[in-house]
Design a binder for these strands. Structure first.
Length: 354
DNA sequence: GAAACGTGGTA
DNA sequence: TTACCAAGTTT
């Protein structure tokens, strides 16, 4: 091999070059990706990146398509009501994303003339855009050379450089290593290629190194430790909590409330509940006077940081005057935008009075 | 740095 | 079945 005397890096012989060549052949066809020759739409890039936070491509696909059909641009989204937006997000989880989505859309319209900021720093100031999303939108939508690090990139890079420090302590080293291999051109494609690689080949278990375009660069593969990386600190056990969910029915309608704007399931329509505690709260904080009928059944739902078992109580009657809420036709409950937890409880409760 | 914050798929 | 995990952000 001839020695190079140029001061510029030999781009053709780099992990980025190998990865981009692979991406040109194997990129996934996803609804939010611009097709060859198309200019990326920052609105679609932003929306998809927010939907994809901690959420699988499979779950996002149909939700993204329905969303852009209803709100095709940032102006239409900014003009929509909070209520409609929260209901449209129901089932996707992490509802702070939807609350921030509205705020960001309105900020883009009110403070940026309806156009997204085109730099990573400008994007970072919008609600709901953290280090990852700001970098991803800057790179994918605007072609900026940004260092994009998500969980896929963390895994690929930890293996590529055999970084054995456990997460999250390894993050600074991983970011620095990612910076070193990020190309000046096509940073957006590079980021998406890294994520495609991480999701399809360099997977958590059973990484398929024989198919990997940068296996030749990979130190973990050379050392036979790919699948043990990245190391992670052990997780804490999730506590188990109890609660009661209340179903008040009258003339084919059920009483729904809106949860407080902050906290778990914040801003979402819901069935009334009592406190969530270590012990079964029974009828504590019941939203109507008895006689409540307890179903001989519970709903168990796992959240990120605790598991919840809900007892199911129902009554035919009226809510107490102090309980704010609205009647909702039981036949149309699917349009109420209930989080999954309450949708599941409602499935058990409706019809239980017959 | 750690905890809060949802849900559904996979092994 | 239990445990882990996914294109993270905010406090």
């Amino acid at each position: 091999m001839d020695a190079k005397h140029s001061s510029s890096p030999d781009y053709s012989d780099s992990p980025a070059a190998r990865l981009l060549a692979w991406y040109d052949r194997h990129a996934r066809d996803l609804p939010w990706r611009a097709k060859a020759g198309e200019t990326p739409d920052p609105y679609r890039v932003w929306l998809s990146e927010v939907m994809l936070q901690q959420t699988t491509v499979a779950a996002v696909g149909p939700r993204f398509s329905a969303w852009v059909e209803r709100w095709p641009d940032v102006a239409s989204l900014a003009a929509a009501s909070d209520e409609d937006i929260m209901a449209a997000w129901a089932g996707l989880g992490y509802y702070a994303r939807a609350r921030n989505l509205v705020k960001a859309a309105r900020a883009v319209v009110a403070e940026h003339g309806g156009r997204f900021p085109s730099t990573e720093a400008g994007l970072r100031d919008l609600p709901g855009l953290g280090a990852y999303t700001a970098a991803a939108v800057a790179a994918i939508a605007f072609g900026e050379r940004a260092v994009v690090v998500d969980a896929n990139v963390e895994r690929v890079v930890a293996r590529l450089f055999a970084i054995q420090t456990p997460l999250p302590a390894a993050r600074p080293a991983i970011r620095e290593a990612t910076d070193r291999i990020t190309p000046d051109a096509r940073a957006g494609d590079f980021a998406q290629a890294m994520m495609d690689l991480g999701s399809s080949i360099c997977t958590v278990k059973k990484s398929q190194c024989l198919l990997c375009p940068i296996a030749v660069d990979c130190r973990a593969r050379a050392e036979g430790i790919a699948e043990s990386l990245p190391a992670k600190a052990p997780k804490k056990a999730r506590p188990y909590r109890h609660g009661t969910v209340f179903w008040i029915e009258r003339k084919g309608q059920v009483w729904l409330v809106r949860r407080p704007d902050k906290g778990l399931l914040g801003g979402m329509r819901a069935l009334p509940t009592g406190p969530w505690a270590d012990e079964r709260p029974g009828l504590t904080d019941a939203p109507a006077k008895g006689p409540w009928v307890m179903l001989n059944d519970t709903v168990v739902h796992g959240f990120t940081h605790f598991e919840l078992e809900l007892a199911l109580a129902r009554i035919d009657g009226e809510p107490a005057a102090s309980v704010a809420g609205e009647w909702w036709p039981i036949a149309d409950l699917g349009t109420a935008g209930l989080p999954t937890l309450f949708a599941r409880a409602a499935d058990r409760l409706k019809g239980a009075g017959e």
